[in-house]
Deep mutational scan, measured.
Amino acid sequence: ETGKELVLALYDYQEKSPREVTMKKGDILTLLNSTNKDWWKVEVNDRQGFVPAAYVKKL
C-alpha cells in the first residue's frame, strides 16, 4: 500500500509485555508511529505493538 513506511528489523526482539511484538532480524515491518524516540509502534502479521527504536531502521 502506498503511504506506508517500512522498517527493517536489525536484531531479534522477544516481546516482554502484551503491548510489544516479537520480530526476527531481517523482518520488514510496517511503521505506524515513530514519535517516541525509544519505542516505535509497528504492525507485523496483523498484530500491532511496540519495538525498541534502536532495533529497527527506516527503509
Rank of each mutant, 00 (worst) to 15 (best):
E15Q: 12
W39I: 03
K24V: 10
M23R: 00
K25T: 07
E15L: 06
K16T: 13
E1I: 13
T2W: 11
N45M: 12
L32T: 04
L10G: 02
L29R: 01
D12E: 05
Q14S: 12
V7F: 07
V7T: 03
L31A: 02
E5M: 12
N45Q: 13
L6Y: 15
E5I: 15
L6P: 04
K41M: 15
G3N: 13
Y11C: 15
A9L: 02
L31T: 01
K4M: 11
E15P: 14
K58N: 08
K25Y: 05
L8T: 07
V44E: 04
K57G: 08
S34F: 06
V7S: 03
K57L: 12
V21K: 02
K58R: 12
E5T: 14
K57Q: 14
V7Y: 09
L29D: 00
D38Y: 15
V56P: 02
R47C: 06
Y11S: 09
G49F: 07
S34M: 09
P52M: 02
L8A: 06
A54S: 15
D46L: 09
D27W: 11
L29H: 03
D12Q: 03
K24T: 08
V51F: 00
T22A: 07
V21R: 02
A9I: 02
T30M: 11
G26K: 02
L10P: 00
K16P: 04
V44L: 15
A9T: 03
E20P: 04
V21Y: 03
E15R: 12
P52H: 02
L32P: 00
Y11N: 09
N45K: 14
G3A: 13
T22H: 04
Q14F: 15
L59H: 05
N33V: 08
V44A: 15
W40L: 05
V42C: 05
S34I: 06
V21D: 00
A53W: 01
L31V: 06
K16N: 10
Q48I: 14
S34Y: 07
G49D: 00
A53H: 03
E5F: 12
M23L: 09
E15Y: 04
K25G: 05
P52F: 03
Y55F: 13
L31K: 01
V51R: 00
L10T: 05
P52I: 02
V42L: 04
I28F: 06
N33R: 06
Y55H: 09
T30A: 11
K25L: 05
V7E: 00
P18K: 09
K16H: 08
F50Y: 15
